[in-house]
Design a protein around this nucleic acid. Structure first.
Length: 817
RNA sequence: GUCCAGGUGGCGGAACGGUUUACGCGAUAGUCUCAAAAACUAUUGGUCGCAAGGCCAUGUGGGUUCGAAUCCCACCCUGGACACCA
């Protein structure tokens, strides 16, 4: 027997698989297409770390498993190479992104080759190549023509470090999701996609999708639907009207003030002359405050405007304040202040000594601490366990009603009297796609002095990204392309007159919002995707990726797919039938990051132990959906495991007949376990089952060829190289990865003797071995149990009050009270 | 603050109403060796005991059940997502 030397067999098979196009299904004739997709990486020349490998291997194992279930699996790979991530890396190492992209492409593909994934290397997609971004620009044009891309001047999120605007989805906790800088607000003219036109569909379809629940929840939260009413408040003198949105109309009798946000133009109408100076001062001060100052200090501030409005339900006079805790971007930029039942309003009222008036109480009255001395009661909207049991008081004819009833009746009243209307608000806002950076697809728009905004004609695509040596972002709210006269000076496609190109590029998430459509159609230069191909291969059967893309990539892709569906270009409106989020691989108890210096490089491990060992170890260290902790020491265990599988070939013989019931049972039990576990991505327990069977086989004198063959078939998705080699060693031909997955038969799983624990008062006192044929005979089994000496010891002198027997499971005697 | 995961040996983790600690790492002892490494074999939750065996252990406190790591309630931690969204 040869020694197991991973390095020599792994590269050999990788080369052969690629040459033979083993993992390139025929796009046209494949009978059972199965599209298995992994989120493609955004490359930087540092290469993939072991956390990336973890994700890619997990997806690959599932793909290979499906392949062996005789499906024509299409498992493509590509690079999401445009965007800030790659560009920042270029800035850091001071190399031009164009050159760098060539290096990173090579490096990434080499690494992905080394790990042994079953990629179709004939169909890669790189978003930064003109033959791809031509169609990203085409997509923009479709959006534009459908009225879903529009330009507006808006206060947008500006990252002071990356020197570009960001989408709302890219701002986390007031900070840039890339670099962590606190974002600023900037007024700029930008391109937006009207994702808000699709809100209800994006929300509604979620229920039908087979996706990881946490991702669906994140999307629902992001869309942020809330139902309430839009209520009109007239100023005292009826000269002005302001609308507020509320989800808690039942508290309307508790309104003691009204707050308008400093940015709200309606504010002006409420300011009384004697207060103008102070109000102006306040508004100015707020505008000067940076976002970070606002984040840090959340203490309530505000100024009384001098104006009053009338509460439409009880006709009470309510003072109007201006305060920056009211956001201009949500609802109407004005809220009714109910300090009795809203924590923020309460805080505000306390600070400025405004009246607090509770109007809802528990059905059976307040109990001591329910309502504080300051009159604040944590009302249902905050602690909704009270929602069912609380009633209104001091609310005219609505007193005594529950919140739900009151909301109903008050809404009716408001609508009947034209005081407002029921309304649904969403958190989701339109997708800002302009970026003032270099490394992205130029937005295909031309501005003509005469014709205005003109779309670049489709025949002129791609608008190629020029090689600009000064690719650094300028920070002036303009892309570096704005310095290239050759680029921006154009003739208007309409009138031929002097015109100027849009110099911003589009968001990298636009590149990735449709890449899955391109893979099956990469060879077509005249269209983004071929109708027949799409029909055959999409939607994606299984999509695996990180949960960090819950509201970015995964939401945008769904939106874009819906639009293409509405344009009649796709038959489906959801791109990913099944999505599973993988867990995060951490190292030394912490997230892998450069700053912590705990990045683990997979190359070293591949060199030392081989890709098969690394794959097996990564998949064994914890449940794939939950991630785990990478421990350097423990990887040796996986290496030993494969060594032992290799060594087992010595014991293989054809002369022993596989007849022992126990042998068959182990085999079928393992097939069952591994099959079911892979299906659910529970790779760690699948591998544990393989180890158990291996331990069993190693203890035997001889191992039958049949057993060994099935063993390596089950192991093939996890360790593709060693199993391929062993496949040839045992005299088989063709690739093991094109073999059919072993099947199990339940008839071998039953045992002759079944062990039944016997409990006395809930504690196990003995374990009986019961013959299969009497297992259902309650009396006999109970008698055997009762007669057990170990059990008798605990029954002595006591009477059995109750006996529970679950056939084949357990027997339980109850003696105590 | 809200939402979502989780808290089980020295460690990563199994089990997810029915024998807690599968599988692996580590540790200890042994075999082999001049020696070491590797490999192989055995032991390995705590505690009392010479042993048989007992008792105690799944974050804490209650509850449901013949039986709870698992289900319910409250609380305490850890990780993640969202967050002045009215």
């Amino acid at each position: 027997m040869n020694k197991y030397i991973p390095s020599s067999i792994e590269s050999k098979w990788q080369k052969k698989w690629k040459e033979d196009k083993l993992f390139s299904p025929d796009m046209e004739v494949a009978k059972n297409p199965y599209y298995s997709l992994m989120m493609f990486p955004y490359p930087s020349a540092e290469g993939l770390h072991v956390g990336n490998m973890y994700a890619f291997c997990g997806s690959d194992i599932h793909s290979r498993f499906k392949m062996m279930q005789d499906l024509d699996v299409f498992e493509p790979i590509g690079l999401d190479g445009f965007g800030i991530h790659s560009e920042n890396y270029a800035l850091k190492v001071n190399q031009h992104p164009v050159e760098l992209s060539k290096i990173t492409e090579k490096r990434f593909y080499e690494q992905l080759m080394m790990i042994g994934n079953a990629y179709d290397w004939t169909r890669t997609v790189e978003t930064f190549k003109p033959n791809y971004y031509k169609w990203t620009q085409w997509l923009f044009l479709q959006m534009y023509n459908k009225g879903l891309a529009y330009r507006k001047k808006a206060s947008v999120n500006w990252c002071p470090k990356d020197l570009t605007v960001l989408a709302d989805e890219q701002v986390i906790n007031g900070a840039c999701e890339r670099c962590g800088s606190i974002v600023e607000k900037k007024l700029l003219e930008q391109w937006f996609f009207k994702i808000t036109d699709y809100t209800e569909r994006l929300l509604g379809n979620l229920d039908k999708l087979d996706w990881s629940e946490k991702v669906k929840i994140a999307q629902r939260m992001w869309i942020g639907k809330s139902e309430g009413v839009m209520l009109k408040f007239n100023s005292e003198d009826k000269a002005a009207e302001v609308e507020v949105f509320t989800t808690a109309l039942d508290t309307v009798f508790g309104v003691t003030f009204l707050v308008v946000s400093p940015e709200n133009p309606l504010l002006q109408k409420f300011i009384k002359e004697d207060k103008r100076e102070r109000v102006d001062q306040y508004v100015k001060a707020v505008k000067k405050k940076t976002e970070s100052q606002r984040m840090e200090n959340r203490e309530k501030t505000g100024v009384f405007t001098g104006g009053y409005v009338i509460n439409p339900l009880n006709r009470e006079k309510v003072p109007v304040w201006v305060a920056d805790y009211v956001l201009v971007g949500y609802g109407t930029g004005a809220v009714m202040g109910v300090p009795g039942h809203d924590a923020r309003d309460h805080e505000f009222a306390q600070k400025f000594s405004l009246k607090v008036k509770p109007v809802i109480k528990p059905k059976d009255g307040f109990k001591g601490a329910d309502v504080g001395q300051d009159g604040f009661w944590d009302y249902p909207e905050i602690k909704n366990q009270f929602a069912e049991t609380s009633v209104l008081f001091d609310s005219a004819q609505y007193s005594g009603l529950t919140s739900k009833e009151a909301k109903q009746k008050m809404s009716d009243y408001i609508e009947d009297n034209n005081l407002g209307k029921r309304q649904i608000q969403y958190h989701l806002r339109d997708w800002l796609i302009s970026r003032q950076r270099y490394w992205g697809p130029p937005i295909p728009i031309i501005y003509c002095d005469k014709c205005g905004v003109v779309a670049v004609p489709e025949k002129d695509l791609p608008v190629e990204l020029p090689y600009v040596s000064e690719f650094r972002p300028s920070g002036k709210g303009q892309s570096p392309l704005a310095t290239s006269a050759d680029f921006y000076n154009v003739k208007c496609p309409n009138c031929g007159g002097k015109a100027r190109r849009e110099t911003d590029v589009s968001d990298t998430f636009l590149d990735s919002s449709w890449y899955f459509l391109r893979y099956p159609s990469v060879e077509f230069d005249d269209k983004p995707f071929d109708k027949q191909r799409v029909k055959k291969w999409l939607p994606v059967d299984m999509y695996i990726g990180g949960a960090e893309h819950s509201v970015l990539h995964l939401l945008y892709s769904r939106f874009i797919t819906m639009v293409l569906h509405d344009l009649g270009l796709l038959q489906f409106e959801e791109p990913f039938s099944k999505f599973r989020a993988h867990g995060l691989l951490i190292a030394e108890g912490a997230k892998m990051s450069k700053s912590k210096g705990n990045i683990v490089n997979p190359d070293d491990y591949i060199k030392e132990y081989g890709a098969d060992t690394l794959r097996t170890y990564l998949m064994f260290l914890g449940p794939f959906s939950e991630g785990g902790d990478f421990q350097d020491k423990a990887i040796g265990g996986s290496y030993r495991f494969l060594q032992r599988v290799w060594a087992l070939q010595e014991k293989v013989t054809d002369s022993v007949i596989l007849s022992e019931a126990k042998d068959l049972q182990m085999m079928h039990k393992t097939i069952k376990k591994v099959t079911e576990d892979i299906e659910q991505l529970k790779y760690n327990t699948a591998i544990a089952a393989m180890m158990e069977w291996l331990n069993y086989l190693s203890r035997k004198e001889k191992v039958r060829a049949e057993e060994y063959k099935i063993y390596i078939l089950l192991l093939a998705p996890f360790a593709p190289h060693i199993t391929e080699e062993l496949w040839y060693i045992i005299g088989e031909s063709g690739s093991i990865h094109k073999e059919s997955w072993p099947k199990f038969d339940n008839k071998y799983l039953e045992e002759e003797e079944i062990s039944i624990p016997v409990q006395v008062d809930g504690k196990v006192r003995d374990i009986l071995l019961i013959q299969k044929d009497i297992i259902d005979n309650r009396e006999v089994v109970e008698k055997i149990a009762m007669e057990s000496q170990k059990v008798q010891k605990f029954l002595q002198g006591k009477s059995v009050k109750k006996t529970v027997y679950i056939p084949g499971k357990i027997i339980s005697f109850v003696v105590s009270n």
